[in-house]
């Protein structure tokens, strides 16, 4: 079989001219990827269309940190319909592998369901940071570069301790869950592990709200009807806490019933200032975005990356001066997001 000419020197002069003309004509039409320069390609996958304040801040703080470090990068942000769309997220992982990205930030829909995608990423040699989970997968072929999260149980325990103190060890509390799975369970179990030590506290375990603010709002209205003597409602995420807070405010009960969220995001702090959310375990969310960027950069530089990064919590409530804490927590994301 005749070989195709490999270099321009193999081409006859006339062909060379034709090739040059063709190139001049075709260059404006060539694909963008052919003109791609050196920036590292990052895929940022979050587990829900409903990109909450927290997911947005992780995204922007990661970018802010990469900018600070002078890294040239391009990032593609993706999300699935909701945190139960495991097959959808797997399809997105497969697509970014085909696209040929350098790093993946995987906000997994669920710990176990992330395994097939992580296996494929590892097989393709693409390092992935797994966000929101602290336990590296047992299976080496599915293990991420680093697991970044705030300890959900620890946050739940803080919320539980705050509640027990506010209620003086007695009262009726309800828990609104998120999406069935590890994150929701850990945040609830941490809370229960504290309040259940107080015999005077009666616990009502509420429904799963899929971390959805509207569902949490409706679930709270139902709870208030079924249990008009509630003293406190704990929602296991920002959205759930805010949904509960709104429903309690609409019922005119903000003075009687404490409402708690989780995460201490900007929206929650604003709600606390306005008096319709009582408290929330605040995590310094930008620290985790910085950790994502640092993990990528360390890997690029051939440095060792710790398998787990876990950030601290601090309890904030409507009576505390959270401005300084929030300013620090959002130091990278706030300038880029404008809030």
């Amino acid at each position: 079989m005749r070989k195709l000419p490999l270099t321009t020197s193999d081409l006859p002069r006339r062909s060379l001219l034709a090739a040059a003309l063709a190139t001049a004509l075709v260059v404006p039409l060539t694909s963008p990827t052919e003109a791609r320069a050196e920036p590292i390609q990052i895929a940022y996958l979050s587990p829900s269309f409903d990109i909450s304040d927290a997911w947005e801040r992780v995204y922007w703080s990661m970018r802010g940190r990469l900018d600070e470090l002078g890294i040239e990068y391009e990032v593609q942000q993706l999300a699935v319909q909701d945190a139960t769309d495991h097959a959808g997220q797997l399809a997105q992982v497969e697509s970014v592998i085909q696209r040929g990205v350098d790093y993946v930030m995987l906000g997994a829909t669920e710990y176990e369901s992330a395994i097939p995608g992580l296996r494929q990423l590892k097989a393709a040699g693409i390092p992935a940071v797994v966000y929101n989970f602290l336990t590296p997968h047992e299976d080496e072929s599915a293990r991420g570069l680093q697991y970044i999260a705030f300890d959900h149980e620890e946050g739940g325990r803080l919320a539980g301790a705050w509640s027990a103190v506010k209620l003086n060890g007695g009262g009726k509390v309800a828990v609104l869950q998120g999406v069935p799975g590890v994150v929701s369970d850990q945040r609830m179990n941490g809370f229960l592990s504290v309040v259940e030590q107080f015999p005077g506290i009666e616990v009502v375990v509420g429904v799963h709200t899929d971390f959805d603010r509207v569902k949490a709002f409706e679930a709270t209205q139902n709870l208030l009807t079924a249990h008009p003597d509630l003293d406190l409602i704990y929602g296991v995420s920002t959205g759930v806490g805010l949904g509960a807070g709104q429903a309690v405010r609409q019922a005119g009960l903000s003075e009687q019933i404490y409402t708690l969220g989780f995460g201490g995001t900007g929206d929650e702090v604003t709600a606390m200032r306005e008096g319709w959310l009582s408290a929330s375990p605040l995590r310094s969310i930008d620290d985790s975005g910085v950790a994502v960027a640092d993990a990528f950069v360390a890997h690029m530089n051939g440095e060792e990356v710790a398998p787990v990064w876990s950030g601290p919590f601090v309890m904030v409530d409507a009576w505390s001066d959270a401005d300084e804490i929030v300013a620090y927590s959002n130091r990278y994301s706030a300038p880029l997001m404008g809030r």
Binding site: H86, S113, P116, P180, D210
Partner: peptide, 8 residues
């Protein structure tokens, strides 16, 4: 494909 399932 995902080696798992759940009610949702």
């Amino acid at each position: 494909r995902i080696d798992g399932t759940q009610a949702t």
